[in-house]
Amino acid sequence: MTRPEWFVALGLLVFALGSVRLLFVRDTVTRLVALNIAGAGVFLVLIALAARTDPPDPVLHALVLTGIVIAVSVTGLGLVLIRRSDDGADESRDGDAP
């Protein structure tokens, strides 16, 4: 296997692991981690495909850069929502404690 093929295979395996876990896990933080890992797998595929030409394809690099920023903003918003949901769950469990 050539090096791009090797890393495409790795990327697809990481994507499959992340997305299968995303579908099955109940915990919200682990879901976000799984989403990020599945995304990283897609990025790996794109960068490995870019590395097939010399010099590497900058369009795919730019796509991945954009993807990383979007992934971070989705993760950030997701974490804020998880925090709110956890705070709500804590309050209802504590009853009318201050």
Binding site: R3, F7, L44, I47, A48, A51, P55, P56, H61, V64
Partner: peptide
């Protein structure tokens, strides 16, 4: 480290 190996220093 993998991005660096694949010639993508920006990434």
């Amino acid at each position: 480290a993998i991005w660096a190996r694949l010639g993508a220093p920006d990434v």
